[in-house]
């Protein structure tokens, strides 16, 4: 048996490894430590936002009052934020007909349906994880004090980005469409329906199609829409186009869809209530 350095305990080395791997297994299999991670994340976001809003920004403002260029920069930033908000509102206005036509919402109040939009700002988005790994998440803070529940649609000026998961009263997590664990029901113009999963690659989702179930009609660059099945996403919203068709087996193909909405384009998002 290998000799260990002085004062090292063989039992402690092995026991710690076994405990850590058990914790990893439990978290991987059952997501058991999600509340701990949420608590850490929301606390760190709170500290960051608090220090930025009440310490860094006042300090910066007092300094920028000396320099006019600083003020101009802030104004430029505000204008950009306003423009982003306006673009989201424009997106809603231009798609309102389609959104109201969605038969999977409450049919009796179809005409009265007034889409409410809550603007929200990104407080934490691990771009590195978004580009390297399967987990595509971001944390948003609503601009108005409103309790945002889970399973609400999040949009940006380019289209649907993902859906919400409630973390606490003032913070929510967004599962992006490209997240590996995310599913969105889709369709094309030829009544082809499918449940697309996130591919784990930025702006890409995929759909495995069994060709034995009948003729399927799809081509590259064909537009893909949300089908509204499942009741979370509105029906008929263009979400992207077919990017690649891969043959998995002679009777099964994988369609890879390039999404329209890039979550990196703006800091502002809208949540449809």
């Amino acid at each position: 048996m290998a000799r260990l350095p002085d004062r090292s305990s063989r039992f402690m080395l092995i026991a710690t490894f076994v405990i850590c791997s058990s914790i990893l297994f439990v978290d991987f299999r059952f997501d058991a430590f999600k509340p701990v991670q949420n608590f850490y994340k929301s606390s760190s976001i709170f500290i960051r936002v608090f220090s930025s809003e009440y310490i860094a920004r006042p300090l910066y403002r007092s300094l920028s009052s000396i320099r006019d260029t600083g003020r101009a920069k802030e104004e430029n930033q505000n204008l950009k934020e306003e423009l982003n908000k306006q673009l989201i509102e424009n997106y809603i206005i231009s798609n309102k007909k389609i959104l109201n036509r969605n038969i999977f919402f409450d049919v009796t109040t179809l005409e009265k349906l007034d889409l409410k939009l809550i603007p929200a700002k990104v407080v934490d988005f691990d771009v590195n994880q978004y580009r390297c790994c399967d987990k595509h998440r971001m944390f948003l803070l609503p601009e108005v004090s409103s309790d945002i529940d889970s399973f609400k649609v999040v949009i940006n000026p380019e289209g649907i980005v993902g859906q919400t998961i409630k973390v606490n009263r003032s913070l929510f997590e967004v599962v992006l469409l490209s997240d590996k664990s995310h599913r969105i029901p889709i369709q094309n113009e030829n009544n082809f329906y499918c449940e697309a999963s996130g591919l784990g690659i930025p702006k890409k989702i995929f759909c495995d199609v069994d060709l034995t179930l009948g003729d399927k009609d799809f081509d590259l660059k064909q537009k893909i829409y949300s089908s509204g099945l499942g009741g979370i996403f509105p029906k008929g919203i263009e979400i992207g186009s077919i990017y690649e068709i891969q043959d998995l087996t002679p009777k099964e193909v994988r369609i890879i869809i390039d999404l329209n909405a890039d979550p990196l384009t703006s800091n502002y998002f809208g949540v449809l209530l």
Partner: peptide, 27 residues
């Protein structure tokens, strides 16, 4: 793990495994 928002225990397991290997093959 908390900082990177990955699976809880992923880095911990790999770190302890590396330390275990280094200790076992220290000499």
């Amino acid at each position: 793990d908390l900082h990177q928002n990955t699976f809880f225990g992923l880095n911990a397991t790999l770190f302890t495994l590396s330390i275990l290997l280094i200790n076992y093959n220290y000499f």
